[in-house]
Design a protein around this nucleic acid. Sequence first.
DNA 1: CGTCATGGCTAACTATGTTAGCCCCTGGGG
DNA 2: CCCCAGGGGCTAACATAGTTAGCCATGACG
Lengths: 198, 198
Amino acid sequence: MTIAKHAEAPGAVTGPSQGGDLPRPSPLSPRAAQIVAAARELLEEEGPGALTMRALAERIGIRAPSLYKHFADKAAVEAALIEQGLAEVGTVLYAALDAPEPVVSVLEAYRRAALAAPNMYRLTTSGPLPRHRLAAGLEEWAGTPFFLAAGDPHLAQALWSFAHGMVILELDGRYPEGSDLGRTWSEGARAFTARKAH
Amino acid sequence: MTIAKHAEAPGAVTGPSQGGDLPRPSPLSPRAAQIVAAARELLEEEGPGALTMRALAERIGIRAPSLYKHFADKAAVEAALIEQGLAEVGTVLYAALDAPEPVVSVLEAYRRAALAAPNMYRLTTSGPLPRHRLAAGLEEWAGTPFFLAAGDPHLAQALWSFAHGMVILELDGRYPEGSDLGRTWSEGARAFTARKAH
DNA sequence: CGTCATGGCTAACTATGTTAGCCCCTGGGG
DNA sequence: CCCCAGGGGCTAACATAGTTAGCCATGACG
């Protein structure tokens, strides 16, 4: 996910529009798709540490080396998962744009999506991105809703950073026990909506 | 780092004060301290992947198994690094409080500290924290400046989330090439300072 | 009917964290 | 003076990771 550097008209919906034009993720053979599906189950159900080539192979009833007939290496499997993650979060965010308060709505949708699939979220958004392995335009497409909601590229990046910070710190258990994160989210949302109105 | 749930008076400096009272990090024998120092060099100079027990041992002229005479496991060495990281970032943040615009100043200090030692930053702030291995109070102490700058616990958490999101996304190269992150930072800073003034 | 790509397999290599068990040295008590 | 306890090294070895090499069955197709 990335927010375009759009120097163009701030409010107007310029290039990437409603969300219909999802850049096609890299095509996968049926077998490869099955592997990715299994990888996702493994990741979500048992955490990142459980996503090993041997465990993945076992889940679909083959041996680890056979996986390499379908993917160059483990990172390639992860890249396919990242594409899924970007596509899904993007879809959710575009849908959230159609609301009276898009900034608030996008933030809520972002949090909901992340908490619904925490390990996918972490994989998708943490660490350096293997961009060369991802479908061109996908990353930017997924981030564009922030721009569409904020109306300004810098505010959009700030908004995205806030959202990501909130989510990842929550997932990592970094907030103190009894924190009322709902209030923290709305505090941030208010700060950014106010700022949006110049 | 964590921001206390202070239900008390928002503006007043209540519990943790100026920054003089850094909770003492866990004491280390001289040899252990040397190991941690070497680990830090390894981490900063060659990245997280280079921080292996064998490489660490070699750097101080011993064999890997001997490290276990000083630390229970690799995570214990990392915990010691995390303590260093928290202590250092906290120190910097407390120092930044003494400025006309503490919110802006704390944000700037945070970014500067993170970029100066990116791998330390990542280790310190990413993934679940091994809290039982850390000196009690250290994490909260390091986060308190955000509270002191923001004056309100929820705004403080929002501010911290924004700062962390900005930093980690920058370190991970998630922003598009030509992004003017300076402007994004000040956009966020403005949003939060405005919000601070109710 | 051969042949060749597809997609399995076993065996094995390397790197990593970690454990078991040995040994040397040094310093304090009997 | 000896002894012996423990701190702090060492080698050997194990389990688990990703990954490679090389072999073999199967099925589509000229």
